[in-house]
Design a protein around this nucleic acid. Structure first.
Lengths: 463, 463
DNA sequence: CAATTTGTATCTACACATTTT
DNA sequence: GAAAATGTGTAGATACAAATT
């Protein structure tokens, strides 16, 4: 029997007692899910304590625990012991960063496509591959993880990034996103917990959610994730893995310092975490002659899946990523690849290998790195204080009162497409908002410059 | 306190009381998993009833339920109410049908590669695509579900198979297996139950297991799955979806009759199941001028994902499949594709489209269908009683006493590679065993004929 | 065909850790 | 720094459905 009537309580979620059906936990979690998905409960809303709902509905409170649990595993809500339960950052909204269909009137500064102008060497390489008569042998099943000489090309390529590997424990996937899918599917199970930065690659967030993996954000400072916070969270949550973008993280552009890398490696090793290292940007450092810090893959020697996508550095249309893993995961990953892809297109892989082996890949990368530097200098002219470190995007603070949808829409109406920080947030964060500004998708310098003008005008106006 | 000492009971699984640690359910399920994976508990073994283990260990029996539950969701065991709990068919063994690395001394009659000899038109089409200057536009992000004209080509292609669709609710995936991954990931959640034939495509079994989906085998007769059995199972298990290969099912080669298709469609519609229709073989019927039965996709008008892989009919090396779905799933599937692949290689898709649009695809398919018919006639000469219906494989009964590994190994030693029925079994089945014999991978007619001789000799010897 | 065996689903009880007050 | 609030993890009790005897 309820102790109170609760009529005057402002329960943010107040399920309708009359609509309760057995089993209770299912009818309740359906109701909660519906309210969140329909937007009746907004991101960041604090839900009533489990015991309060239980009291109100006259149910045992672990039944409510079960309701919250189900929604938590779906990524709709998250709980903090002692604090309460909250609606997740973007429980349902479409934050997937897909490929926008080209609209000539909007300047693309949201998605990070990579410069696509420079595709001549790629076309040349394609012709070479075909003329060489490889086609016949490529159009057959074999080597599901990639042909040995393609993997060798991959090993050579990632060497530049201080990630050392060997074709015998590498694989080719259909792009970095696909490699992440393979890694998550092969090595994790629903309910497993993975440490991430508080802001991280939004497609990873969605992917993890699709697999019903639970993401646990770990605090960081200007050098990236804090090792102590990670270690503490291990004890607290029983983490299974960790996802890191050590160099020029997406979207925050933070790079882990060498000390930080070593400290994190030591925690990862001590706590037996499984690291997924997503290396999207080191090529920009290597190609522009900047110092390259050691990969965690090298520092750890095991427990680590290293992924290097070729899309951004070489050619957006060819979907190839190289993956390196410790030998003990080879069976699991082979299974994952067999089940997800059977195998990756040999043609794409062969073209990429050709580009690496004939040296064009290095030339293309250098060219793209130059462009990136030019656009980042341009960006810094508009927004002083930003350095011109390599990177395909910038992380622009815009103050606290700029809600997700509205800000993006306002800017869209002014003619630029950008992404708001909430797309990248693992939990709903109050306070500062940011925009991620892509430096490489506007099409040309003039469009990009116009975009920056629009952006600066909007920011000065609204602050 | 245990009532009995159990020392004389032959408990097939008898956990060591002294090694029990808290939490009990974890330490126990770890132990059970280890025993199964290490082979100490073999496929089909009946485990002790939950209450018996609980009694023996002096624990509440729902704790054992939890242990069994965890292992069940991992696909290690399965339970039948009233009967007991059993170790699953191939709980851990590597049954994934991957791509075997070529060994010239072994005749390949296991994996179904598709004839790869006839790749000249594919090479021509590749050159055409490149010369046409498409390359530049292909090497860019756009149209994550596939270019409209590629999808239109797909729509035209599947029309032959009485599957009608429209480019606006179609997508291109990187092969049929990849399409299955997209469908499962986008539309199902861990724990969801999917109806399947008792023997079905082994990679689907593994894929479902990776996603922690539970497969429920449904009885069938010579016309395929029984509608009444399906309907009954809906009520019993609360099925969410169903996976069917309506034409020349893999591996049983059964084709659903037209009446059966209509009856199943009616159950699927009435029970709100989500159908995944994997069409791997209708092209063989179309290409050899045989009658084509209506697809369930057409019969259902909704609730159905239709998948048509191009690998077998056209070219093993190009990884393309067309998928058609009801409009209401477009968002979910777009998300799935964005998260798994970002997008499929445009180059492969473009080559396939070119082949369809310039008519070569039809010619290639006819050629391959002819070869398939020739090899199936050859097969029927060796094994009378088999008809020469289209199909890339045959399902050969070999009697009850031919265990999985041993049979495959025996035949491997004699020089042929084949797959045993246990690879395709959803639950462990006693009784008749089968071999799936691939008709299209031996390399040439002479090798295939030698393979059949070896096979027949083995069978007559051992029965 | 009724009683028994057996698996599955749901709800309840309790212990514990962290955060806030 | 103790008490209260709050989420999470584990174990137990009960009801029920299907298959077997």
């Amino acid at each position: 029997m309820p102790i109170n009537s609760f009529d005057h309580y402002p329960l943010s979620w107040k399920p309708d007692k009359t609509k309760l059906t057995v089993p209770y936990y299912k009818s309740l979690s359906r109701d909660l899910e519906e309210k969140i998905r329909s937007g009746k409960l907004k991101a960041g809303t604090k839900l009533p304590p489990q015991r309060e709902i239980a009291d109100y509905l006259d149910l045992n409170y672990t039944t409510i625990t079960r309701v919250y649990d189900r929604c938590r595993k779906k990524g709709l809500i998250y709980g903090v012991t002692g604090k309460g339960t909250f609606v997740a950052a973007h429980p349902t909204e479409d934050v997937t960063i897909a490929v926008p269909d080209a609209d000539p009137d909007t300047i693309e500064m949201g998605s990070v496509n990579g410069f696509s102008e420079y595709s001549l060497p790629v076309e040349e390489a394609t012709k070479t591959v075909i003329q060489r008569g490889y086609l016949r042998s490529l159009y057959e099943y074999s080597y599901p993880l990639g042909h040995p000489h393609q993997l060798a090309a991959g090993a050579r390529w990632i060497e530049q990034f201080r990630a050392h590997s060997d074709p015998s424990h590498m694989a080719i996937c259909a792009g970095a996103q696909n490699a992440l899918t393979v890694a998550l599917l092969s090595l994790f199970s629903p309910g497993d917990k993975i440490a991430v930065d508080p802001y991280t690659y939004s497609n990873f967030i969605e992917l993890a959610r699709m697999f019903h993996l639970v993401l646990v954000p770990i605090a960081g400072d200007k050098d990236g994730m804090l090792p102590e916070a990670l270690e503490k969270s291990c004890h607290l949550h029983g983490l299974k893995g960790i996802y890191l973008i050590p160099t020029c993280a997406n979207p925050t552009t933070l790079t882990l310092s060498e000390t930080r890398r070593k400290e994190l490696a030591s925690v990862i090793s001590r706590q037996h975490l499984l690291l997924i290292e997503d290396d999207i940007s080191t090529w920009l450092f290597a190609a522009s002659g900047r110092p390259v810090l050691p990969s965690l893959h090298d520092l750890l020697q095991g427990q680590s899946i290293y992924i290097c996508g070729m899309t951004k550095s070489l050619c957006p249309g060819l979907r190839i990523a190289f993956m390196s893993f410790p030998p003990e995961y080879k069976t699991a990953i082979s299974h994952g690849i067999a089940n997800i892809n059977i195998k990756t297109s040999s043609l794409d892989a062969e073209i990429i290998s050709e580009l690496i082996l004939n040296g064009s890949a290095y030339v293309i990368a250098r060219k793209k790195a130059e462009w990136a530097e030019q656009t980042s200098r341009l960006f810094a002219r508009f927004f002083p204080g930003f350095d011109t470190d390599p990177g395909y995007y910038r992380w622009l603070p815009i103050g606290p009162d700029h809600p997700f949808r509205k800000t993006e829409q306002d800017l869209m109406e002014r003619g630029i497409h950008v992404y708001h920080s909430e797309r990248f947030a693992v939990t709903h964060e109050e306070g500062e908002n940011y925009l991620r500004i892509s430096l490489c998708s506007a099409g040309n310098r003039y469009r990009f410059e116009r975009g920056l003008q629009i952006l600066r005008a909007y920011i000065t106006e609204n602050n």
